[in-house]
Amino acid sequence: MSATPPEGGPRGPRVILEEPAPSTPRLDFGWEQAVVPVAAARPPGRWSGLGRVVAGAALLGLGLAALDAANFVADQFTRGPLQGWATLGVVVGGFGLLAAGAWTELRGLASIRAVDHARAAFARGELEAARAEALRWAGGIAEAAPLQPALREAGSVAELRALLEAGPLRALEARSAALGRAAAVQSFAVTAISPSPGLDVLVFTWRGVRLVRQVAALHGLRPGFAGTWALLRRTLADAAMVAATDVAVDAAARALLSNRLLEQFAGDAAAGAVAARRMLRLAKVAAEACRIVPPD
């Protein structure tokens, strides 16, 4: 190929200056928007058919029960003040307990949301927001309370993160791992001696949920039912990855041993090992989900 430019084309490089403008901004490739995965737009907040059915049933159940209870209290007052006051006491106590339960659930959910807010503040690098979240969190954790003055003085998000990671978070992770090991030993034992696979699943599920709640409590969260469910949902994706490994462990254990007796024993032991490993993993994942600092 010759270096000669195409026939009739311009020879040699040139600089062509455009008309001067008062202030030309620098080129912007929208790099930050391009590389940051843009969150999908949330679908409009319409209730699904099933959602309306459940909401309607709840409204009917609670509303009619409240109206019925009010009428009943009024009726009781017509029979006599003693019956009336006694009935009112029972109704207020019952509905009070219901409301307290709901309030606890909401607070549990809110505490998990607070973890999300703290992580977002750390991820965005907003020092003041991250500091406020870290201080609020440290106030509720015995391990982190002595760190509050240092958190107030921290000059950067990296410093905040380092303070938290080197101190309380490391201690909490160690304690979560210890909880996981205890749960793993129990699961291994139960799986090895239990007569039916169905019981294994039941014990594993119960122990898993308890483990998640223990780890959450360690991190200053007091999740109710809804909070526990939210935490469990976060671990589901990870659990799916663990399952693939479990299949491989089981298959390898069976492939290595041809003796039927050994195979039987090894199969059970492998199942126990898998259950124990899942517990260890669950403890780790739950601790990661409860951390107020996002993973690096």
Binding site: G9, G12, P13, R14, I16, E18, L27
Partner: peptide
């Protein structure tokens, strides 16, 4: 955008596929 804030288009010339012959440099330095 050039350092002064002025916008410029640059035509870098034809880039040869292999080390060019002497005639390539007739246009002078750039």
């Amino acid at each position: 955008v050039l350092p002064g804030g002025r916008v410029a288009k640059v035509y870098p010339g034809e880039i040869p596929l292999r080390p060019p012959e002497p005639g390539f440099w007739e246009h002078g330095f750039f």
